[in-house]
Amino acid sequence: MIEFDNVTKTYEKNEKDALKDINLRIESGEFVFLVGRSGAGKSTFIKLLLREIDATKGVVRIKGHDISKLSKSQIPYLRRKLGVVFQDFRLLENKNVYENVAYAMEIIGRPEKKIRKKVPLALSMVGLSDRMYHYPHELSGGEQQRVVIARAIINNPSILICDEPTGNLDPETSKDIMRILLEINRHGTTTVVVTHDMNIVRLLNKRVLTLENGILTGDSSKGGIANV
C-alpha cells in the first residue's frame, strides 16, 4: 500500500537530511506506529505521503503508483485516498460538528442526499451522535479529535494517517481514540499512527517503525526494538 524506496529528503535551508535512505513497505490493511523524537523526521514522512513536498531522492509509492509523477492537478485526488488526523484538530470553528464532517464530502462534490445519510453514520462510529449540532469550542479535546477522525474517514480513504492523534489528550481519552482507530483499521483501512507517546504504542501489539535523526533504526516486524 505504502512503499518508500531509498527515500531521502533534504530541505534546502539546512544541509542535514530530514530523512535518509528510508526503505519500508506497509501492506494493505496494516496498522503501523511510526515513532521518534521531535525532529526525527516524522512530519517529513507525512508531508511526503501527502505530496506536500517531494523527495530529494528515491521513490514514494502509494498503491504501486510513484506519487512524484502526479501532476499538480492530480494531487487532490491522491489526498482523497488518504484520511488525515492532526494533533491540533484543525476543525472549522464557525461550523458545527455535523457541518465539519459534511464539509469534507461537500468539497469533493458528493451529493447532498448522500451527505445527509453518511455523516450521522460516521459520527455514530466515533460515538458523537449526540454532539452533532455542537460547535468545536463546546467540545472536549477527545471529542474534537473524534470529529477529526470522522472527517478523515468520511470519504472512505484507503489509508488513514494520524499525526500525534493523542498528543493533546489525557491517557484515558487517548485509549478511547486508539480504540476508534483500531476499529477503523479492522474495517480494512491501512492505518499509520505517528506518535512519540510510547504508552499507547506499548498498549497495542502492533508493528512499530522507529525514526532517529532521519534514519529508520527499527522495524518491529523485522525484530527491531522501539526504544524511544
Binding site: L78, R79, I108
Partner: peptide
C-alpha cells in the same frame, strides 16, 4: 487560510477552492 489548508488536505481541487 486555515480553511483553505483543511480543504487542501481533504482533497479539494484548486478550482473548487
Amino acid at each position: 487560510r486555515k480553511e483553505i489548508g483543511i480543504m487542501k488536505y481533504v482533497g479539494a481541487t484548486d478550482n473548487y477552492i
